[in-house]
Computed example of a mutant assay.
Amino acid sequence: MARRPVTIVTGGSRGIGAATCVRLAAAGHDLVLGYAKDDAAAEATAARVREAGARCVTVRGDTSQECGVERLFDIAGAELGTVTGLVNNAGVTGPLGRLADATTDDLRRVVEVNLLGYLLCCRRAARDMSEAGGGYGGVIVNVSSAAATLGSPGEYVHYAATKAAVDTLTVGLAKELGPDGIRVNAVAPGIVETDMHAAMGDPDRPARAAAGIPLGRPGQPEEIAGAIAWLLSPEASYTTGTVLRVAGGR
């Protein structure tokens, strides 16, 4: 009997993360759903994953802290077995606005979650997945953003900067980990209808942005999840070091 993939999804309680968990469950993955604070949302997503026939463990924690990342992977290994997949999705933007008006605390938090958190998760995944270290190999998918190349002036250039760093991390780490049996790719969504926009203070942003998107609409979380699931699948077995843009043409 083939071994089921064991995949960690950070920021898995809502939006793109939740859609990814459900999509991967349908594709035969067992899931570890990492989340920051919303217990009810995490359990609701976990219930959908289990309905699809997959095992699911929820782990509350902060991926910008080393202890939170180590605990996440330790629980994954203890409950489900050796990790073979990581979706680095947890992220924050801070309030919309010009860089000149941003607080130092907001800047620090965006860098710590969006970049340091990804680095910590990738480091632990590399250690656990490496074939040379006794792992089964695996796949890392980093959730980047179209903001990495657009810059997002007047909105959140600091967030865009962290996502550009994620793209560089993806390319470099793919080259570093290829010999260890680990593929590393990224998905760069455009504007997607999630509650992230309300959290940053502009719930109507997706509808307002539609006029500037060649396909004429914002994306849906399920559309991003489909790209992530493909990169994790055997169908993408020769794809590594790629940043797949899923942004409606932006």
Rank of each mutant, 00 (worst) to 15 (best):
T168M: 09
V22K: 03
L119P: 00
G201T: 07
G137P: 13
L99A: 13
Y118F: 12
P179V: 14
T194C: 05
L80E: 02
P203L: 07
G172M: 07
V143G: 05
G34D: 02
E112N: 15
C121N: 06
A90Y: 01
T239R: 05
R50N: 14
N88C: 14
G34F: 01
A147Q: 04
G34I: 00
G68A: 03
D202Y: 12
V69I: 08
Y238P: 10
W230A: 11
R3W: 10
V187E: 00
G135L: 05
T93D: 04
V157Q: 06
R217V: 08
R55N: 10
G138N: 13
G216D: 07
E235D: 15
A227N: 06
A27E: 13
A52D: 01
A148K: 07
L120C: 08
H29I: 12
A210P: 11
I182R: 01
A125D: 11
Y238A: 10
Y35I: 14
G15E: 05
A229L: 04
S152G: 02
P218E: 01
I224A: 02
G28R: 08
P153H: 11
T7A: 10
T239K: 03
T240E: 00
S145L: 09
T93H: 02
A40W: 01
H197F: 08
R60I: 10
A19T: 09
N89S: 07
V143S: 02
A102V: 03
C121R: 02
R55W: 02
A52L: 02
D101T: 10
A148P: 13
G85C: 10
D195R: 14
D195H: 09
D74I: 14
S233Q: 06
D195E: 15
L232P: 14
A147I: 12
R23F: 00
A236K: 08
R71T: 15
V139R: 15
E66Q: 13
A126E: 07
A47K: 12
G248R: 01
S13R: 09
D202F: 12
R109F: 04
T104H: 00
A148S: 15
D38Y: 01
H158M: 02
D167K: 11
I224G: 00
L31M: 07
E112W: 08
P206T: 06
R4I: 06
R60T: 10
H197G: 07
G12N: 10
V9W: 00
E131F: 00
I140F: 08
N88W: 05
A90I: 09
A198G: 11
E79K: 14
L24N: 08
A236N: 08
A146H: 04
M129D: 05
V192P: 09
R183I: 00
M129E: 07
G249L: 07
I213G: 07
G212I: 04
A160R: 12
L86I: 05
R4G: 03
V110D: 02
G190Y: 05
D105K: 14
